[in-house]
């Protein structure tokens, strides 16, 4: 293993393939860096900032910074985790995230990340956003915009994998929200299907397949048994050639 293709995270050596981001290399090596808008199957988005690390003394998003030989990365530090907690708290209050009544509870990455980073309260005042009623016009899938954290994973999945471009973010700042590609503005009037990749990537309870609800009992939901740290989603193995 050549020295050229490795760097350190919190003192631990991590090898990488050229072209990998710090986050990709870290996850492939089994080193957990908190993240929400990154997904191994899609290009990086760099919006949630949860993956912020210190690289050679400067802050940056681990999902968008290319891994370079000899980098010194700090990630699991009290200061960075405190900032990550604050980012999570802001995400929680900006949307309607009331876990006890939400069917995504136990399978939700936002909630799992909050447990992982020991976020014990919301700290900030709730926005109680009103981004419109639940869109249940589609027979198989519903859309609750008030739970959207605007990670654009559905946007990327629909565009890059499903080839449909069903979703997009519109508006600016606090008014930004998810829209769908139909004149009526209704999901039921788009070519979206429950089998689309975009129907399964939402990290929170904004895009939900209908009538699933609470069928998974407490104890058998994704993050009941093991924390999100211990369930790293690995990128598909690199293609040869």
């Amino acid at each position: 293993m050549s020295i050229r293709n490795s760097f350190t995270i919190d003192g631990e050596r991590v090898d990488f393939e050229p072209g990998q981001s710090i986050l990709q290399a870290a996850l492939a090596a089994g080193v957990f860096i908190p993240h929400l808008c990154f997904h191994p199957e899609f290009s990086a988005h760099g919006s949630c900032k949860l993956c912020t690390v210190v690289v050679n003394g400067r802050n940056g998003s681990a999902c968008t910074i290319a891994a370079m030989p000899g980098q010194e990365v700090r990630s699991d530090t009290p200061e960075l985790n405190q900032r990550r907690r604050m980012l999570l708290q802001m995400l929680f209050v900006e949307g309607n995230h009331f876990c006890p009544g939400c069917e995504k509870s136990g399978n939700c990455k936002l909630q799992a990340m909050a447990y992982e980073l020991e976020m014990f309260n919301d700290h900030f005042q709730h926005f109680f956003p009103d981004r419109g009623p639940v869109d249940a016009s589609h027979p198989e899938v519903m859309l609750d915009r008030n739970r959207c954290i605007q990670c654009e994973l559905c946007v990327r999945a629909s565009r890059d994998i499903d080839g449909k471009e069903v979703f997009s973010l519109a508006g600016r700042g606090p008014a930004s929200h998810l829209v769908v590609n139909a004149a009526s503005g209704l999901l039921g009037d788009t070519p979206f299907a429950a089998t689309d990749k975009a129907a399964e990537v939402c990290p929170v309870g904004a895009i939900m397949v209908k009538r699933v609800g609470f069928t998974a009992p407490i104890g058998r939901r994704k993050y009941d048994g093991a924390s999100i740290r211990d369930q790293i989603e690995h990128p598909a193995p690199a293609q040869e050639g």
């Binding site: 009331f98 006890p100 009544g101 939400c102 519903m142 609800g213």
Partner: peptide, 14 residues
């Protein structure tokens, strides 16, 4: 009102 029916048995506990 405005919530999906399968959610109600759990959310109504609030």
């Amino acid at each position: 009102e405005g919530r999906p029916y399968w959610e109600v048995p759990v959310s109504v506990q609030r």
